[in-house]
Amino acid sequence: MRRSKLQDLRVRDIMSADPVTVTPDETLGDALGKMRKQEVHELPVLHGKVLAGLITMTGIIRRKALPHETKVSTLVQPAPEVAPGDDLPTVAEKLIQTGFRALPVVDGKRLIGIVSRTDLAKVIADLEEFESVKVRDVMTPHPQTVSEDESLEHAIRLMQSLGERSLPVLDAHGRLVGVVGIKDIQDIFARPKTRESAGGIGGEKVHLDLQVKGVMR
């Protein structure tokens, strides 16, 4: 049965209960593995039963040289919380303003779920008030693009500067040939990193000199 108004719905109606979480003592490798398995870009971090914040894929990418043994505690970001009774326009505004793809749902200090942009998109598709809305009414005209021959690192920097999670990919003739996004980059970061040494100092490095066409969809 279709609902007629977005305002009729509350966070509790669309949130994902019992989300996958990590603890501050788990490693970056643990977090990346859970993100990849669950196909998510944010994970709530719990200290005991109390929400400590989120670990996000964008935060991990920003600090690309981190070894997989890095503790989650060094990557925790504070995140705005929402309550189960909050209306969806309020949640949508918080997601847009903060740039997060998902927000923790708390009852007091207890984590009870997570609500994401995907959850919102699914419910909007089933609302009568949006049946007459066309793509042209909500699209971003003349979006920023990236060339298929440019490096993955360039694409990451461009996404970070724009606050975007994906970019259209064009070939040398300006034709659309795919999309590159955080999920594609997440797969690169989840791979075991290669060790390099310089001047006797060991380190770990994610190779981002790959061309965009090698990872795009």
Results as ranks from 00 to 15, higher is better:
165 R>K: 14
201 I>V: 15
213 K>C: 12
30 D>N: 15
69 E>I: 01
102 A>V: 03
134 K>Y: 08
211 Q>Y: 13
125 A>R: 06
6 L>S: 00
173 H>R: 15
64 K>S: 10
145 T>K: 01
4 S>W: 12
35 M>I: 14
21 T>K: 04
52 A>L: 05
173 H>T: 10
31 A>G: 00
36 R>A: 12
45 V>F: 14
122 K>M: 15
170 L>C: 04
23 T>W: 11
78 P>N: 01
141 P>E: 06
54 L>M: 15
185 I>G: 05
66 L>Y: 12
208 L>N: 04
45 V>D: 15
125 A>D: 02
160 Q>W: 10
37 K>W: 11
91 V>D: 00
68 H>T: 06
114 I>C: 03
215 V>M: 07
196 E>C: 11
190 A>T: 06
80 P>A: 00
85 G>K: 08
98 T>Y: 10
181 G>H: 04
193 K>I: 01
93 E>L: 12
63 R>H: 14
161 S>V: 09
47 H>W: 09
124 I>A: 13
146 V>D: 05
52 A>T: 07
62 R>C: 11
75 L>T: 02
37 K>M: 07
11 V>D: 03
113 G>P: 06
157 R>N: 03
169 V>L: 01
80 P>R: 01
214 G>V: 02
123 V>E: 03
4 S>D: 15
3 R>D: 09
148 E>K: 00
101 R>C: 13
106 V>M: 02
159 M>Y: 02
131 E>R: 15
61 I>W: 05
3 R>E: 03
76 V>T: 00
111 L>I: 15
72 V>P: 05
153 E>T: 10
95 L>N: 05
97 Q>G: 09
8 D>C: 00
10 R>E: 07
121 A>N: 06
214 G>N: 04
71 K>N: 02
29 G>I: 07
4 S>T: 11
170 L>Y: 06
41 H>N: 10
30 D>W: 11
6 L>P: 01
56 T>M: 07
48 G>F: 06
24 P>I: 05
217 R>N: 12
68 H>C: 04
168 P>V: 05
138 V>E: 07
156 I>K: 03
3 R>P: 10
187 D>L: 15
81 E>M: 13
163 G>H: 04
64 K>P: 14
155 A>N: 00
160 Q>L: 09
86 D>I: 02
189 F>H: 05
154 H>P: 12
177 V>R: 00
49 K>H: 09
177 V>T: 01
20 V>A: 03
156 I>H: 01
198 A>H: 13
175 R>G: 13
93 E>Q: 12
27 T>S: 07
68 H>P: 10
87 D>C: 11
62 R>S: 14
60 I>A: 02
97 Q>F: 13
131 E>Q: 09
42 E>Y: 11
152 L>P: 03
183 K>Q: 10
207 H>L: 15
51 L>T: 14
202 G>Y: 13
100 F>S: 00
158 L>P: 12
78 P>D: 01
